[in-house]
């Protein structure tokens, strides 16, 4: 029987893209679902997210997905967070007037600010939108992805990990921030792998074959 990948649907954002990108890189059964039992049965879990973190965390807590997610992580199955899905795994975020998050990773989510400057003093637009270079470590999810490959980002808040050992990749836009964090069977990325063409599809390819060990 083929494996299943659950994409958690808590009513925020475009999950079609994630599902169709997974369909491109594997024959696993992809379930876009909000059913905790279905998520628990899946072999792998993807936790996406777009929009404001206050709304996302509101829905996550209302539907009990913080607890569901903790259980999935504890079960040892591979879990991948994407974009606001990554931010929601941190301790807290400055967005939406300050938001308590799921706290699987120590660290905060901060605003790029309205006066972000580049290395030459040029004004940088916020949101950080477009293709930026990602400097990664040797985690198996980076297999066959060239160092400093470009991935597609769109976000106004960025992750500052409190634990450098959990930073799996970094990116620079006015400030240096965590483009990916990971520990044990959990990996999370700020960019959108499903929208990052070859490099992004490779990362998803690596995720659906990952044994959950770093």
């Amino acid at each position: 029987m083929s494996e299943t990948v659950a994409v958690i649907d808590y009513g925020m954002g475009n999950l079609h893209s994630v599902a169709s990108a997974l369909g491109k890189v594997c024959d696993h059964q992809v379930l876009v679902t909000s059913d905790p039992a279905e998520i628990a049965r899946a072999d792998r879990v993807i936790f996406p997210g777009v929009g404001a973190i206050g709304d996302c965390m509101g829905e996550i807590k209302r539907l009990g997905f913080d607890q569901v997610l903790r259980e999935q992580v504890a079960s040892g199955k591979p879990v991948l967070g994407i974009c606001v899905g990554m931010q929601a795994l941190m301790s807290s975020s400055a967005e939406s007037g300050g938001t308590e998050c799921i706290d699987l990773f120590a660290g905060n989510v901060d605003f790029f600010g309205n006066h972000l400057k580049g290395d030459q003093g040029e004004v940088l637009k916020v949101p950080h939108m477009g293709w930026n270079q990602v400097h990664h470590n040797d985690h198996p999810l980076w297999a066959d992805i060239a160092q400093d490959s470009r991935f597609y980002f769109v976000h106004s808040y960025y992750v500052q990990s409190a634990n450098t050992e959990q930073v799996m990749a970094s990116c620079h836009y006015g400030v240096s921030f965590a483009a990916a964090v990971g520990r044990d069977n959990v990996f999370a990325v700020q960019f959108h792998p499903e929208k990052s063409h070859t490099a992004g599809l490779q990362l998803l390819h690596n995720f659906v074959r990952w044994n959950g060990q770093s």
């Binding site: 580049g118 290395d119 940088l124 950080h128 477009g130 293709w131 930026n132 270079q133 400093d148 470009r150 620079h172 836009y173």
Partner: peptide
């Protein structure tokens, strides 16, 4: 090194 200008 940084954000690329996009062609659409």
């Amino acid at each position: 090194m940084g954000l690329a200008k996009r062609i659409i």
